[in-house]
């Protein structure tokens, strides 16, 4: 139903012997906030450089807005990106730097510059020279550049690098706002899973150039969330007891032998007692759920 913004097909990049990207297959749909997670050197930046034509692929293909990768000049107009370190002219101010690019892109309305600067929170420092900026401010200017010309798809390479917690939170709100109000699709890379978790609806875990896993937020929640796992053969009876006696509908029947309860997380003994009182045959009952980090570590290990 949703238009596919980016689709890669066995995308590979080799530097002599070193394989930076190994048959990467992923797909981003319109309206997604797609989190690309990987350790340093996993290939996130390489991937982003290839899809923005800054770097040439070795093998495989990709399509951007349905256009093949040898025919992208017009399509690149719809993208805004911040890749690696934000690079701007040191002796120009933020406004003048953006003005330079506005002239380049042929932007007709110069108000877009001020709007972009305001959205990223740089209004106070906008007339100071770029070389005086802190890392966080440089990062913000990079993001302002990415959103300057009404893009449909923005690609951000570790955008929260160097930002303090308040800055990170402001950026998070900005991403959500851009995604909801202007229907902008966003690809963000990071090595911090927790941060990406708060904004993204889809994730892709990449390690040593390979895609280990592509997963939606709902699936991630399921695999990670804290819950009480009730293993029993009498799942329907347990369901009724949960609703009538424990007054909760917050459970899920996984299969014939497993129910996961997302309530009473502090009080699993009460659940235990109630079930036993009702003569339920419990095979086992335990608390489950892992942190995102642990999940990430497990996936990487499995991928090896």
């Amino acid at each position: 139903m949703n238009e596919i913004i980016l689709k890669t097909n066995n995308l590979t990049k080799k530097y002599k012997e070193f394989i930076a990207l190994d048959n990467v297959n992923l797909s981003i749909s319109k309206g997604d906030i797609y989190g690309l997670i990987g350790r340093n050197g996993a290939g996130k930046t390489t991937l982003m450089k290839i899809i923005t034509t800054l770097s040439n692929k070795t093998a495989g293909e990709f399509e951007l807005f349905g256009k093949k990768d040898n025919n992208l000049t017009e399509t690149k107009r719809r993208i805004g990106c911040l890749i690696e370190n934000p690079a701007f002219f040191p002796n120009l101010s933020a406004v003048n730097n953006l003005k330079y690019y506005a002239i380049q892109k042929g932007i007709v309305d110069n108000k877009q510059i001020d709007e972009a600067i305001e959205l990223v929170g740089l209004s106070e420092a906008k007339n100071k020279k770029f070389k005086t900026y802190s890392l966080g401010m440089k990062q913000r200017l990079g993001i302002a550049f990415a959103i300057l010309d009404n893009p449909d798809f923005i690609i951000l390479d570790e955008p929260i690098n160097g930002l303090d917690p308040i800055g990170i939170s402001e950026l998070r709100d900005l991403f959500k706002k851009l995604n909801l109000e202007k229907n902008i699709t966003i690809l963000i890379s990071s090595h911090i899973l927790n941060e990406l978790y708060q904004v993204s609806n889809k994730f892709c875990i990449i390690e040593k150039g390979k895609v280990i896993k592509e997963i939606t937020k709902e699936q991630l929640d399921e695999e990670c969330s804290k819950c009480i796992v009730i293993k029993t053969n009498e799942t329907s009876k347990v369901a009724v007891i949960l609703e009538e006696q424990l007054k909760t509908k917050n459970y899920k029947i996984i299969d014939n032998t497993e129910i996961r309860l997302y309530d009473y997380l502090e009080n699993s003994s009460k659940v235990n007692k109630t079930l036993i009182k009702n003569d339920i045959d419990i095979i086992s009952l335990y608390e489950s759920g892992i942190t995102l980090e642990d999940y990430f570590k497990t996936i990487i290990k499995e991928g090896k």
């Binding site: 238009e3 319109k30 807005f65 017009e74 107009r77 719809r78 892109k105 042929g106 932007i107 007709v108 309305d109 010309d149 009404n150 893009p151 449909d152 202007k182 229907n183 902008i184």
Partner: peptide, 15 residues
């Protein structure tokens, strides 16, 4: 023509 047919945020630029 392009902007009409694509579902895009883009505006027209000048050259």
């Amino acid at each position: 023509g392009n902007v009409r047919s694509e579902d895009s945020n883009a505006l027209i630029n000048k050259e």
